[in-house]
Design a protein around this nucleic acid. Sequence first.
DNA 1: TTGAAAGCGCTAACAC
DNA 2: GTGTTAGCGCTTTCAA
Lengths: 356, 356
Amino acid sequence: MPRKTVTIRDVAQRAGVGVSTVSYVLNGHDNHVGPDTRTQILLAARELGYRPNAIARSMVRKSTATIGLIFNELQNPLFVPVTVGVEEALRQEGYQTILANADTIEAEIRAIETLRGQQVDGIILMSLSRRYPKAHLNTLYAEEFPFIVINRDLDDAEIYQITLDDRGAGRLATEHLIRVGHYRIGIITGPMADSPNHRKSAVDRYEGWHETMLAHQLPIEAAWCVPGEYTFEGGYQAIRALFASHDAQATLPDALFVSSDMMAVGALKAFYDLGMRVPDDVAIATIGDPPYARYTVPALTTWSIPIAEAGQLAAQLIARWLKTGQMDGERLTTLPFTPHIRESCGANRVANTIEG
Amino acid sequence: MPRKTVTIRDVAQRAGVGVSTVSYVLNGHDNHVGPDTRTQILLAARELGYRPNAIARSMVRKSTATIGLIFNELQNPLFVPVTVGVEEALRQEGYQTILANADTIEAEIRAIETLRGQQVDGIILMSLSRRYPKAHLNTLYAEEFPFIVINRDLDDAEIYQITLDDRGAGRLATEHLIRVGHYRIGIITGPMADSPNHRKSAVDRYEGWHETMLAHQLPIEAAWCVPGEYTFEGGYQAIRALFASHDAQATLPDALFVSSDMMAVGALKAFYDLGMRVPDDVAIATIGDPPYARYTVPALTTWSIPIAEAGQLAAQLIARWLKTGQMDGERLTTLPFTPHIRESCGANRVANTIEG
DNA sequence: TTGAAAGCGCTAACAC
DNA sequence: GTGTTAGCGCTTTCAA
């Protein structure tokens, strides 16, 4: 049967003391409480099966030790790693995580209201890398409400943000391809500015590739830049378009920066269907390291998205913010991608040449 | 600057009414409130930027409209779909989701305490399919606290549970293989009872395969049953063990029930390395439909785990429980797996024979 | 139709 | 050292 809830009052009564003493002991503010009183109280609490009511505590403390995590696009594969990163880091700092989904800006505004109504101490917003209206964020900021934005294309020097260095990733991947001995390097892009599904990361990765090609004075063929929308299908079709239906005497790239893992898997399938071998006929470098990236044939050489780290960092920052009551340090942190060199770029060609 | 929090009192004052009237109006219990009083109140609330304090409300209502979701193993790929299923369904019912991680039973007990301390209205436990101590669940049950357990090997007729029909899935996959024309069907098993990482699902899937083979009077060779631990490596090694190092005159299976998707990917790679073709040389049916299952070469024929549905159902059940104040209906619901027939079992052999 | 007032369970001055 | 008490912001009798 549902036992009547045990309150601090019951404990006090049972221990034969006042409620405040119980409160002190239970909260560890008991330097000034006699040791036997203390024992009595602890005992009484145990016997009664007392469970502190966090809600009541929150009300007087005006802090709930919970923070809200708002994400848009549940189906986004980045959702897991952020949530994990946030949840773990927050738990270590003594905070609970409340989840809120928000597919649109209106929903986001509503979620923020709800979360604030629930008196969360802070909010972490996990986004697609895309530009959104930001009036509601400015309001939050003006009210000095603690919040951190991850991976949003946000043009604001004041709001605390964590972004991912997609441009750097494009650079690194392209440089790796060059280092390994390629110079005819094409790119399969994600949803660029002209796509309805536009992501800033697609543009950034493209720019990383582009500036690296420029820096190395490598040829940039317009035909070697094919859109793939970050999807398996897109990657597949991009390869078909590039390799299957080309002019017979056209030069083709011998390496590809495929700017997302899903597209890379599509590309792999396309090459398989085309009877071309990766990395022998064409090398592939990509971005994003889902669990299966190491199990494709060949395993993908890729740069992983530091999204769990972003979640973790956001959690730590906000925890510090709440503890110190103010925010210091950089407003914008940009996290680097991590390389995972596997098989899809092959061994170093230059080295091979020398050795063999 | 952080505006001082606006309370119902402020609104009442500004509207020139009592707090209770404001409360009535704000909660829609205003049949008996004069229309202009009503308007005044709404106006005042808007002007002041009033935001109801859910914590304070919870305290008096003794209900927080939040439910806790406890999962063990954050890295479990099933985590996303459950969370999504739970969160979406709960949101529709007007509840918030609080996340809690708990890798061990001790952590689970603690998480339950914390969550109850936070006055969640109910708890959903998402588990590995494994047997755990359950005393703490019995306590919960005895206290009539609303909670639902998903996917735990729980021997209890009273606790509300949702389980997944792994055995049926094993049956379905094996039957499909038979239907398509195979009868020498081996199995790669997951962590069975003898594994330190034991999962009940592994045993169930095995049994599904076993009883189907029996039912069809098909040969069951001990050598065709190889353990793979549900991992890529395990799947890979299992195939090597089975096909690479066999006695020359030994008969080999022409089809395999690979009881998890990850192992199937490992198997695919092993067959590739062995120079064997799937499904031509050997057909593969598997369990679990991660996003990449359709993008492998060949695409996997598989039965997807109804885990999002389980989350959704759990959410709906618990919402109903909370609304009606009691639980009715079945204590145990077992959810079926859904087939995704793709390429790894090949076309129907019998049909091929007839046609060609 | 409306308002005053009594708590919900807890914390933290403040008094003893 | 320990107890009394005043709220935190809200809902909901109960009177008016």
